[in-house]
Design a protein around this nucleic acid. Sequence first.
DNA 1: GTTCCTGCAAAAGCTTTGCAGAAGA
DNA 2: TCTTCTGCAAAGCTTTTGCAGGAAC
Lengths: 147, 147
Amino acid sequence: MNKTLLELSNELKKNNIRLTHQRLKVLEYLSNCTNHPTVDQIYNALKEEVPSLSKTTIYNTLNYLAELKLIKVLATDDNEAHFDALMSEHGHFKCDSCGQIYDFDIDMDSCNTEKLEKFKINEKTVYFKGICPKCLSKINLIKSEEI
Amino acid sequence: MNKTLLELSNELKKNNIRLTHQRLKVLEYLSNCTNHPTVDQIYNALKEEVPSLSKTTIYNTLNYLAELKLIKVLATDDNEAHFDALMSEHGHFKCDSCGQIYDFDIDMDSCNTEKLEKFKINEKTVYFKGICPKCLSKINLIKSEEI
DNA sequence: GTTCCTGCAAAAGCTTTGCAGAAGA
DNA sequence: TCTTCTGCAAAGCTTTTGCAGGAAC
């Protein structure tokens, strides 16, 4: 499960970061979010409800959260950061066709390797790419129509 | 092992991409490279030997190679693309202190998950972050001096 | 009242694009 | 000769920074 709004708020309070109206809205959105939004997506989702909201504030808030390790920043190959409030260990699958990012369970300990014995590992990321089932079935449909 | 200069050249010829002086130099550099350079690093490494070289040409060449799947583009959290000519399956470890990227062997099949049964997986990336042994020993040295 | 935050505008950094001249085949 | 490539300059993106007014505490 994602961190709840309450959890995120409490963590900010604990770190003396002010709970402004804008920040609470960003936290609320992120904690209810199942995909992994970019700053632009968060901005577009909230700008009706919070018309004065600026991207600067979203960056500001997300950077604080990431620094406190309350959220994760996903490095994908589109040059845009995706944010993830789901902090349990999981992998990401990105569909090359529709761009959607899926979560999947993974046991990263089974991936471990003796070569990194002397390394201090703080973060493990697993990122797969390919075509998701939805897009695969669309492609198959087009192919069958062509025959 | 990295792809050799000859392999990369032949692949380009096969795809009717011209082997210009600049491209050969970029290929040569990449095939002899053990770290995972950015465009900027390649540019700085080659600008003495090839003074007229421009970053545009490096981007051009690397984008062709990536499209032909002869090299890989690594998504890291610094907003800069890293390029990798090592095409065998391996993971990457990035040191948060010195920024260096290390390769490590990994058996990705052991990481597989039943939830992705219906997904077509084209690419698997494993990316760890933390502190490398070199930086760890530096930190320990500083700590022991402080006592 | 003090401190920190917001949001605008501008700047910074990476990457792509347009195009005239140059080089490859 | 014909096609493609190079490299400059400019534009396009995301993200960061500076700062005056405003909100939180």
